[in-house]
């Protein structure tokens, strides 16, 4: 199922998004560009601060690791030089995680990562902070039972049902099909990694996007994440400009 998105649901934040897919639900909020503390100030760029708040509890090294990953990923797509000596704050609140996530066999941080990346991008789009390009991410999981047929963006139940997992990867691509994030776990050959990369690239980027069958049907048409993103923005624009054709 294509991710469900609501853009700009919050009133205080400059940009926000709620994102739900496969049982993972995240609320993202962006404040910025705002004033930065002297000690964090960068003379020719914007400072980026990312907070990942888990559904339960207040955060552990796992959240800090995700924050570091997201900060460096997003820094490469935000036009930070356009906003020197300001602060961009991004907060991601995990609302829910499917019950099977803890036992499915893939690390919790890996299953959550693509959803955090997608929510971050949506929140940034909602905040109209200038970006160099977009970024979308997908999880690819290869079970031991069928190593040549990787699962792309599987649900936690599907991963659980597939049995032992040989290797799993998260890839993120920018609008120019360049790889921005690659996190892997398990044991795999270079060829297997390359294959996972190609599969993820097709899901994330347009032009020759491989349909995922039922997994990504939108109005009967197979779409990939780029197409989905464009549709989300089209709806945003329609909403903002409805006064032009309003009664």
């Amino acid at each position: 199922m294509a991710p469900e998105v609501l853009l700009s649901p919050l009133h205080r934040a400059d940009g926000s998004a709620t994102y739900t897919q496969n049982g993972y639900s995240i609320i993202g909020a962006v404040n910025g560009p705002i004033e930065v503390l002297r000690k964090d100030e960068l003379p020719s760029e914007a400072t980026l601060e990312v907070h990942v708040r888990p559904a339960v509890g207040v955060g552990s090294p796992k959240e800090r690791h995700l924050e570091t990953l997201l900060t460096s990923t997003l820094r490469s797509i935000i036009l930070t030089h356009h906003l020197p000596r300001t602060l961009i704050q991004l907060t991601l609140q995990v609302r829910s995680i499917p019950a099977e996530d803890a036992i499915c066999g893939v690390s919790a941080y890996l299953t959550l990562l693509p959803h955090l990346i997608n929510t971050s991008l949506l929140s940034l789009l909602s905040s109209s902070i200038p970006l160099r390009t977009t970024v979308t991410a997908a999880l690819v999981v290869s079970p031991t039972s069928s190593p040549t047929m990787p699962l792309v963006m599987p649900t936690a139940q599907e991963i659980l049902r597939a049995g032992r997992i040989k290797h799993a990867h998260v890839f993120a691509f920018d609008g120019e099909r360049k790889m921005v994030v690659c996190e892997s776990e398990g044991s795999f050959t270079f060829e297997e990694w390359e294959e996972a990369w190609e599969v993820a690239e097709d899901v994330c980027c347009r032009d020759g996007g491989v349909g995922l069958g039922e997994a990504m049907q939108v109005d009967g048409q197979s779409e990939n994440l780029e197409g989905w993103l464009r549709e989300v923005v089209r709806r945003k624009v329609e909403g903002e400009q409805r006064w032009k054709s309003g009664t």
Binding site: I77, R132, T134, V233, V237, Q241
Partner: peptide
């Protein structure tokens, strides 16, 4: 027709 743009287009 409105031309919808994403960053990077």
């Amino acid at each position: 027709t409105t031309q919808v743009l994403l960053p990077g287009d």
